[in-house]
Design a binder for these strands. Sequence first.
DNA 1: CGTAGACACCTAGCTATGCTACCTGTCTAA
DNA 2: TTAGACAGGTAGCATAGCTAGGTGTCTACG
Lengths: 111, 111
Amino acid sequence: MPQEKAEFLKGTLDMLILKVVAGGPIHGYAISQRIQQISKDFFQVPQGSLYPALHRLEERDWLEAEWKDTSTGREAKFYKLTRKGRAQLETEMLNWERLSDAVALILRTAG
Amino acid sequence: MPQEKAEFLKGTLDMLILKVVAGGPIHGYAISQRIQQISKDFFQVPQGSLYPALHRLEERDWLEAEWKDTSTGREAKFYKLTRKGRAQLETEMLNWERLSDAVALILRTAG
DNA sequence: CGTAGACACCTAGCTATGCTACCTGTCTAA
DNA sequence: TTAGACAGGTAGCATAGCTAGGTGTCTACG
């Protein structure tokens, strides 16, 4: 049996997270819910993808974290975009546009 | 110095190859040229990505290979789609459509 | 009361992918 | 005769995303 893999988020996760965080400070768990909700359940970010992603984004100085209380009084790590992060988001969105255009071109033209 | 990576083809390579091969028997080197050409130079499939991809597609029985002469008389390995390969292409195209729709939704809605 | 399930965080370890950097050999054109 | 296109290939690396596990709190329900 070769391989039962999901692999939904093909290199788009970082961009999606950055985009959601661009909406204002938000904690990790809520980010994944928001991605799932907006995408109408297409994306279901597993926690094993989410948290490592958040950590690498933080390490690259694209996100900043701070522990704060949620509305329900519990503690959670709230992320916000850094200036570098905002620039990175711009770049990634542009790249994504170009990539999907190029793919669309091939899917329409080739074959 | 972190890392100077290119990473243009984010999980799309298999689909692009299948799509190009769907146009009729074609050899590896020509596949990469065709992808580059149709995408207006956006994609430049390195050989170190191309050949391993072809081999795994063949191993999954999505492609079939046969050595034949090119128009210039040289030998080359011509690939064509198997029935499974054609089905796989359908699936991947559908998935891609859904993926890019979901991403577009988030890029428009979030933030 | 106690327990299931949501909330919120995390890590280890695996696999697959795409990349750089190499290698072989032929043919054509400068 | 030599550079560069053509045509095939491999080794080894980094990374991303996944599964599967873990911690602990709070709420709701039987």
